[in-house]
Design a protein around this nucleic acid. Structure first.
Lengths: 349, 349
DNA sequence: TTGTAGGCGTTATCAC
DNA sequence: GTGATAACGCCTACAA
């Protein structure tokens, strides 16, 4: 027994006793206002379609129309709950405009990023949202990106710094809120502040690293390279980094993790080292993932509206698709600090 | 300035001074062994393609070949880290066979599920993997599914119980490991055991609810409906459920959460209620999400190989696509208990 | 108000 | 070895 052949417009037309064009008109709801179909014909066509179980073929439509009604979205790390919010926001926005979303994550494998690039150049998606400036890391990705740009394919970048390039951008920047974090810790008396810098790609959290250094300078505190541990993006990485950090002499009285996932590992490590949070060591994260407020103690963190981020990105992308020649745009989203229990006064030393 | 038109095979053919067919042969690497191209021509074509930046059009290819080289995957809850493992496994397996994966999650909105169903009937994907038997909940989904089945579209279900239906299935069942969980708690002296039953859809965790009841019966413990709290799937739900649970008289000495995400909420709630885990109350979760072993205390949990689950599902699906008429198959994956610090002897009453 | 016909970019079946 | 040519299913001027 073979798979049943899909019914086509032709089949529907035959059954309804009309032409293919008429079926198309009816199915598409008479898109152009200047064509009208008699109610009787309309009903006959609809019934025939129903009876046959006719469903329009998206591939044929895509070929004909030159548009797939699908957008690509690349996030840096699918294991980080923070990015779901962005996916969620993008998803809703895309759906509201009748677009699908193809999700890809860099962490599954570096190749996946490449893959979705190719999706775009193969015309499987009408546009692309790139989150995290990882592209700048790989020569090959750069090359592909360049070609896509030359073809003027719609691309929106979500990143942490404004580029003067000709690109639509959504910028969400932890720079100024990182200043707030550092000032909070400083005002609480902390002078030895560690940084757990766990990233998949080294340019991914510069908006936290740079303010960290600058603030220390502003406070008149010498930068100590031992207080910055560079590691991977998993909880385990944060855990290990903390052991390294607490080995310093003297050890830090506060630890800033560049995201909440790492902070989970940091807090657990401190427990295992017999240190109390925040009595002995204060901890701060970034992103305010859902778990953050259920940790023991609840995690102080800084965050932005990640869902809105995705939403805005899709909006920009759709605008670009609709009007390829408009000037490039940049949307900036603010971040805010959320102080919870994991930060407290520095212990008197 | 308009967007540049994509170069087609025609353009390449013209530049290389050959026919469209020849270009196709070269690009596809002479798929059918019986056609051969002279090395010189081959090189000329490749150079022309490179020079023009020619990239095959996936939509045209899909239309011609009747296959999109894409698979759909529906997971119940993208916010639950447990399911990423499955996505990851499926993704790798699909990729290895040259397939893409379209991800959809029921939690984003119930509509998303429907949406991917439609993707399938519109031929945007060659097959579908359904995770969680949520389909049985919605009449509409049922209807669509039925039609898809009639068209004999390739579908694989990942669920927690064997169905005698004619479907390819991957079954991962927490039933027997839930027995182990209950026996562990019983042997530790627990007699009042609470269940936090937080699911998006009510049939999603029957493989934990049913053994729970049966075990109590086996232990000669009367079932107390107050000890089972039905709630939603978020951490906050688990948190609230625990307050309700600890209001019982007498309160439970152990709480089983049907997944680790809920267990995070449970543990936080117990802290806020001034109870110590595991001294006052033992906690058990399911899934062994990455966070589980970093909680304070580390979480006892039961799990299966979620990545393998996804892998197997894709394998089944691809087999079905290749050979539509093979007999239906079912793969069963085992689960195992991981005992950590969150379980201990029942307090002496 | 409805039908006819051409073409979107590919691949596959033929001839040559 | 290579080159015409016919689909794949759909949309849309334009003709009737």
């Amino acid at each position: 027994m073979q798979r049943l052949k899909r019914p086509t417009q032709e089949d529907v037309a035959r059954l309804a006793g009309v032409s293919r064009a008429t079926v198309s008109y009816v199915i598409n709801g008479l898109a152009r206002g200047n064509i009208s179909i008699s109610e009787k014909t309309r009903r006959r066509v609809l019934e025939a379609a129903e009876q046959l179980g006719y469903v329009p073929d998206a591939t044929a439509r895509a070929l004909r129309l030159g548009t797939t009604k699908a957008l690509g979205l690349i996030i840096p790390d699918i294991r980080n709950p923070h990015f779901w919010e962005t996916v969620d926001g993008a998803w809703r926005e895309a759906r509201a405009s009748g677009y699908h979303l193809l999700l890809s994550s860099m962490d599954l494998s570096a190749e996946y990023g490449r893959e979705i690039f190719e999706e775009l150049s193969h015309r499987r998606v009408d546009g692309l949202i790139l989150m995290g400036s990882f592209i700048e890391q790989s020569d090959e990705a750069q090359k592909i990106l360049l070609r896509l740009r030359k073809q003027r394919l719609p691309i929106v970048e979500i990143s942490d710094h404004l580029r003067d390039d000709h690109v639509d951008q959504v910028v969400s920047d932890y720079r100024s809120v990182t200043h707030e974090v550092m000032e909070l810790l400083f005002s609480l008396g902390h002078r030895r502040i560690g940084l757990v810098y766990g990233v998949a790609r080294s340019d991914l959290a510069l908006d936290r690293l740079e303010p960290y250094r600058k603030c220390l300078e502003g406070f008149g505190i010498a930068f100590d390279e031992h207080l910055v541990v560079q590691c991977g993006p998993t909880i385990e990485d944060g855990y290990r980094a903390t052991f390294a950090l607490m080995n310093c002499d003297p050890p830090p009285t506060a630890i800033v993790a560049i995201n909440d996932l790492l902070a989970i590992g940091v807090m657990r490590a401190l427990v295992d080292l017999g240190r109390s949070v925040p009595r002995d060591v204060s901890v701060v994260g970034f992103d305010d993932i859902p778990q953050a407020r259920y940790l023991v103690p609840r995690l102080t963190t800084a965050t932005k509206d990640a869902s809105l981020l995705g939403q805005k990105a899709v909006q920009l992308l759709l605008k670009r698709i609709a009007v390829p020649d408009r000037p490039y745009e940049c949307v900036v989203l603010p971040a805010r600090l959320i102080v919870r229990e994991s930060t407290g006064p520095a212990p008197r030393g």
